[in-house]
């Protein structure tokens, strides 16, 4: 695996080299991702954006270790990614909170799988992250008693609490209304600045990607490939309606639509 020459491991949290993923579809093999080479830097907020069918969710599953690559390698630091692990936690599309547990127990779920913590430390950590997402007073509530936005906040706390090295976000805001979404963009940026996490966000919403990402990677579909990478040099916290943000989003949209549809 002498293929890490492109960036030194000290600055890259995740390194993807020539990653290809194929699925067996009804009409033969489908290539979801082809030859993806990408680095996610330590402490970076990377947004991956693209039309549906560009394999961005597949990429996230690969990073999470829920699926395996057909070709190429994915490394976290200098360890190959082969299976799910607590160093890469996922915040999913709809809330994947467990309805049989209350808010606190949901956040504790991942923490209880860390054997090196005492129960008191777990509780302290769970409460810390619930307070961080502004739900410190809801720990006894059941998921169904919360609004969609609150549920995604709990999901965020649940994936942050075990202190993963990388946080993977799979369109976590897509089911929320515009108002709640904007509120969460603010919260996430605040937490990101405060905790300096490495975050990979997958979304089909270009504004969202530009608002949150340090870099925006545009994927093109059929098969999924990296089309272009944009640097977002805007100060945080960013507002969704900021004109310079809108300009950059328009630039990304232009690049997206310039791609010949197949």
């Amino acid at each position: 695996m002498g293929n890490r020459s492109e960036t030194s491991p000290a600055t890259a949290a995740l390194t993807l080299r020539n990653v290809t993923k194929r699925f067996d579809g009804a009409s033969g093999q489908v290539t979801a991702l082809e030859d993806i080479t990408l680095d996610v830097r330590e402490g970076e907020f990377l947004a991956i954006v693209g039309p549906s069918g560009c394999g961005k969710s597949t990429l996230l599953s690969l990073l999470a270790g829920l699926e395996q690559t057909n070709e190429g390698t994915i490394n976290l630091g200098d360890q190959p990614v082969e299976a799910p692990g607590r160093d890469r936690l996922v915040m999913f599309q709809q809330d994947a909170l467990f309805p049989w547990l209350n808010v606190l127990e949901n956040v504790l779920f991942g923490l209880r799988l860390k054997p090196d913590l005492t129960e008191a430390e777990r509780l302290e950590s769970a409460r810390y992250y619930l307070n961080l997402v502004g739900l410190g007073n809801k720990e006894k509530a059941r998921p169904h008693e919360l609004s969609g936005g609150m549920r995604q906040r709990v999901a965020l706390a649940r994936s942050l609490a075990p202190n993963p090295r990388v946080l993977l976000m799979d369109e976590p805001f897509s089911a929320l209304d515009a108002l709640t979404r904007e509120q969460l963009y603010g919260d996430i940026q605040e937490i990101f600045t405060k905790r300096k996490k490495t975050i990979v966000l997958v979304t089909h919403n270009i504004r969202e990607a530009v608002c949150l990402g340090d870099r925006v990677v545009l994927f093109s579909p059929n098969p999924g490939r990296v089309q272009q990478v944009f640097d977002v040099d805007l100060p945080r916290p960013r507002r969704l309606n900021d004109p310079s943000l809108a300009n950059l989003a328009a630039e990304v949209t232009a690049a997206l639509t310039s791609h010949p549809a197949k």
Binding site: L66, F92, Q94, A96, F109, G110, L113
Partner: peptide, 14 residues
């Protein structure tokens, strides 16, 4: 059982 629950649990190490 929704696959999403399984995926979420697995990523947390279950």
């Amino acid at each position: 059982v929704p696959p999403l629950y399984l995926r979420a649990a697995q990523t947390m190490g279950s």
